[in-house]
């Protein structure tokens, strides 16, 4: 399965697609594990850069897979990674939508959903941890992270302003 980069991209992201409870943000540690630690497609800082670029771009967060795919195998890589990450879950969504009314009140359905909540919270926390370790190499970067977290928790300011502040502080050469 690891012979061709496109095959690896398709395989990993298709599998990841089905285990990403909590959405793209919950899948970040697994993407990092595969792209940086296992396949050595990129280093820590490139991975963190791609997360930042995906966050600054409009659209669903899952778009980070297109950046990873492009880095690995150009246009075809971006297309394959995106298709693999969305394909299986979209098929599932299409099929489940037709029978949803039959089991939406079922006890097992509610139990599954309730059981997934703590897992997705743990996974998204893991994403924050993995990204912080990849990105915050200085005390100042760590301070920006902490300040943004506090600020975002207390206010409802558009995230783009926080990215702008972070970018300007980075440009100033402090980090």
């Amino acid at each position: 399965m690891n012979d061709h980069p496109l095959t690896s991209l398709a395989g990993y992201f298709a599998l990841l697609s089905l285990f990403a409870v909590g959405g793209a943000n919950a899948a970040i540690p697994e993407m990092h594990r595969v792209a940086v630690e296992l396949m050595h497609w990129m280093n820590d800082r490139q991975f963190a850069d791609m997360y930042a670029i995906a966050q600054m771009s409009p659209g669903p967060n899952v778009i980070i897979v297109a950046l990873i795919g492009y880095h690995v195998a150009g246009f075809a890589g971006g297309a394959v990674a995106t298709a693999a990450m969305c394909g299986p879950t979209c098929m599932l969504a299409f099929l489940v939508a037709r029978v949803w009314d039959r089991f939406k009140e079922a006890r097992w359905r509610i139990a599954i959903q309730a059981g997934m909540v703590p897992l997705s919270i743990g996974l998204i926390a893991a994403s924050a941890f993995v990204l912080a370790r990849s990105a915050d190499h200085t005390i100042y970067a760590g301070l920006i992270t902490a300040a943004t977290a506090a600020f975002a928790h207390a206010t409802r300011v558009n995230p783009l302003w926080m990215f702008l502040c972070g970018g300007l502080l980075g440009l100033s050469g402090w980090l």
């Binding site: 930042a52 924050a128 920006i144 992270t145 902490a146 975002a152 926080m162 990215f163 970018g167």
Partner: peptide
């Protein structure tokens, strides 16, 4: 990008 990433991680923590 280092600065933006630091902020993006903060947002995720929030």
């Amino acid at each position: 990008l280092t600065g933006v990433t630091a902020a993006a991680v903060g947002l995720l923590i929030a």
